[in-house]
């Protein structure tokens, strides 16, 4: 029994680490610009699919780099061309346009699959293989090397992002905008440009999550929405706009979901994120580590 709990902890930790990457980006954009980016799951989706599409011809390294660059650009372009012009009109139109971006990307993915023959390259190789084995055993628990890699990369990247936000000039201006956008513009900070960078960073993070996780957990076009609802649940739980909250929320939610699916019922486990969203909004809308109000 203990090994099974261990095994579920391993699975939960890996998914938690991936959702940490996804939710930190989501939270960053919300915290800085108040933008509810419904296309965030779609960023994950397109990065994952690009890996499939490129892998056959370009090799792993080039595919990963290209996928990350393109998804980051998609983030920037989405902001500049669609979100920014609507931002001054109303919050609702921003939400609507990100919704539209998400659907658009989903259709692009479907189109890409039918043109490029998705299933031909549908199984990605292991990222790491050591001496002909893909996993090792620890006290009877099977741990794929890829999982260890996913954990290391996610924590490394989240630490770097934290460092960047707390140390660099751009990072400080991101925090300044998140606290008082109007005052920040009075300092000569171009809030639109900084916001574009945050959307790009968040797309990049979603892209990293996709390229490290998709080899272990393949995707389907609809999956963008599942990623979105789950990361939404993570930030609601951890606190909108709070990065440590996103880290905390990602792990809590992932463990909760995995323990539920294994020991209670898989059907209930898919309800866990929805349950968290509803309960948290009712009891503590600001989340565990969020500020008093969402604004």
């Amino acid at each position: 029994m203990l090994t099974d709990i261990m095994q579920v902890l391993v699975l939960g930790s890996v998914e938690g680490a991936v959702y940490m990457l996804i939710a930190v980006g989501y939270s960053l954009v919300y915290g800085t610009g108040g933008i509810m980016n419904l296309a965030h799951g779609a960023f994950y989706l397109i990065a994952g699919y690009m890996l499939y599409w490129y892998l056959g011809t370009l090799g792993l390294f080039t595919s990963v780099v290209l996928a990350l660059i393109i998804v980051t650009l998609i983030g920037g372009i989405s902001y500049l061309a669609l979100i920014k012009p609507l931002e001054k009109k109303s919050q609702l139109s921003v939400v609507m346009v990100t919704f539209a971006i998400a659907f658009f990307i989903e259709q692009i993915v479907k189109l890409g699959c039918s043109i490029l023959g998705f299933e031909k390259e549908s199984t990605l190789p292991n990222l790491i293989e050591i001496k002909g084995t893909v996993s090792f055993e620890l006290f009877g628990t099977i741990i794929p090397y890829d999982y260890v890699f996913i954990l290391i990369i996610s924590f490394l990247i989240v630490s770097l992002i934290t460092l960047f936000i707390s140390k660099s000039k751009l990072g400080t201006s991101i925090r300044a905008i998140s606290q008082d956008r109007e005052a920040a513009t009075l300092m000569g900070i171009n809030a639109d440009r900084v916001l574009m960078f945050t959307v790009m960073i968040s797309a990049f993070l979603a892209g990293v999550a996709a390229v490290i996780y998709v080899p272990s957990y393949p995707i389907a076009p609809w999956q963008g929405w599942v990623i979105l609802t789950n990361s939404f649940a993570v930030v609601i739980l951890g606190g909108m706009g709070s990065l440590p909250g996103s880290v905390l929320g990602a792990f809590i939610l992932s463990y909760a979901s995995h323990f539920t699916r294994v020991f209670i019922d898989p059907a209930i486990s898919t309800l866990v994120p929805m349950f968290v969203i509803v309960v948290m909004l009712a009891l503590r809308p600001q989340g565990i580590l969020g500020k008093k109000e969402i604004d």
Partner: peptide, 22 residues
Amino acid sequence: PERRKLFYDLSVLENLKMGSFA
């Protein structure tokens, strides 16, 4: 601006640095 509108979660020095952003 009116009511100061500081960056309340930033340190004093960081606020000053933001002031000289441009």
